[in-house]
Structures are given as structure tokens and as C-alpha cells.
């Protein structure tokens, strides 16, 4: 039997001393090393995640794909089913997504030119219950906007990922998880520069078992 109290704790609205014991809504990253680094649960939902990439195509999508597939499978046939892509740098290629097991009908592309429109679109997407994940590409963002997005995310259970240039690493950010991606000839190194309750961590070949 589910008690109202359980529901309350599950949504993280109540702060508890022993944070680890609280089941925080999360989705597995699909990469064991990364899951281990993120409190063995995976990407936290309903909060802000920042990926800092040297250039578009550095491996940011491969990193997210397993989690997106998990979310999409859960949203299959349901009304909540969109993976929102806000101003992606290139065409999200449906055949590749299909190969990864994500049906193209989950894709919702939002092309906003100005930064304000992008942020507004992200916020709107987080406010509706129709979105499973919001992936957005932005450059310089005001700290206040980031806080605002984090707040909007807190009211939802969507996965919110901002992809920003690696130069933004020096800017302070309220994001719960921040990672710098460095592609290598062997794979992808991930430098977790911020995560919940733990220090920074360097993961070599994050996408290898």
C-alpha cells in the first residue's frame, strides 16, 4: 500500500538528513561507470543537467541515447511522449534514432532563434506534462535564467539537459550535474565537475563497460 507520505518523499519536496536513502526520480544513463558516478541511479529527473561540449558532435548524443530510449519506451502509447529538442545545431537524424530504438514520433523540434525564445520554449516544455525530456542548445545564459529553468524543472519529472560550449565551464551554474565531455580516439572521457553531494570526478572511457 502506498502511503501519501511515500509520494511526498518521492517527489523530494521534503528535505531529509540522509539524502542517499531518498529515492530521487532518476533514469539510468545506460553506462555503468556513469551511473556509479551519479549515485548509482543515473540522470536525476526534474532538475538541471549541463553538458559542456567542445564542439557539436563530441559524443553528447551517444551519452544521452540509452536514457532517452528508456524514457521513450516508458512513454510509448501514452500521452506523455515527446523528447523536445530546442534549437539543435544540426538535423536530428531520424534513421539514427530508429537504429537506437527511439521512434521518430517522439521527436518534437523547436527552432527558436533568439536566446530568450529558446529559454521560454524550454520553460513551456517543462510546464506541460507531455514532455519526457527537454534537450536544449544554448550559449551564454544569465545565471538568473538558469535558476529559473531549474525551478521550472523541479515542478516536472522531465529530463532537462542543456548543452553549452565548454568555455562556459568557468561560469557558475546552479545545475545539479555538470559534465565536460572530451572525445578521444578510444571513446569519450567525461569530467564530472559538479554532482550532488560529491566531489568532481574524471571518468575515462565513460561509454565502455
Amino acid at each position: 500500500m502506498t502511503l501519501p507520505l511515500d509520494a511526498l518523499l518521492a517527489t523530494m519536496r521534503v528535505w531529509r538528513g540522509s539524502v542517499d536513502s531518498v529515492a530521487c526520480p532518476a533514469v539510468s544513463t545506460g553506462w555503468p561507470k556513469l551511473d556509479a558516478a551519479l549515485g548509482s541511479v543515473g540522470w536525476p529527473l526534474g532538475t538541471l543537467i549541463e553538458l559542456l561540449v567542445p564542439t557539436a558532435g563530441a559524443g553528447e548524443l551517444s551519452l544521452l541515447l540509452p536514457a532517452l530510449k528508456t524514457l521513450a519506451d516508458a512513454g510509448e502509447g501514452a500521452h506523455t511522449r515527446w523528447l523536445v529538442w530546442v534549437s539543435p545545431p544540426h538535423v536530428v537524424y531520424p534513421p539514427a534514432l530508429q537504429q537506437a530504438g527511439i521512434a521518430a514520433e517522439h521527436i518534437l523540434l523547436v527552432d527558436a532563434v533568439s536566446l530568450n525564445d529558446r529559454l521560454w520554449a524550454i520553460e513551456q516544455s517543462l510546464r506541460t506534462r507531455s514532455c519526457l525530456a527537454v534537450l536544449a542548445w544554448v550559449d551564454t545564459v544569465d545565471d538568473r535564467w538558469l535558476r529559473r529553468l531549474k525551478l521550472a524543472a523541479a515542478d516536472s519529472v522531465a529530463l532537462l539537459v542543456l548543452c553549452r560550449p565548454v568555455a562556459q565551464q568557468v561560469q557558475p551554474s546552479p545545475a545539479s550535474v555538470r559534465m565536460v565531455l572530451s572525445p578521444t580516439m578510444q571513446g569519450l572521457d567525461v569530467h564530472v565537475i559538479k554532482r550532488k553531494d560529491r566531489g568532481a570526478l574524471w571518468i575515462r572511457d565513460a561509454l565502455l563497460g
Binding site: 536530428v92 530508429q98 523540434l109 527552432d111
Partner: peptide, 16 residues
């Protein structure tokens, strides 16, 4: 709402 602010072309889905 997205369409109203960003225009019809700015919001779309994709298919294979």
C-alpha cells in the same frame, strides 16, 4: 503556444 510565439515552421516533428 509554441506556434503562436515562434511561428508555424519553428515547431515540428520528424519522421523517417
Amino acid at each position: 503556444r509554441l506556434r503562436a510565439r515562434l511561428g508555424d515552421q519553428a515547431v515540428q516533428g520528424l519522421c523517417w
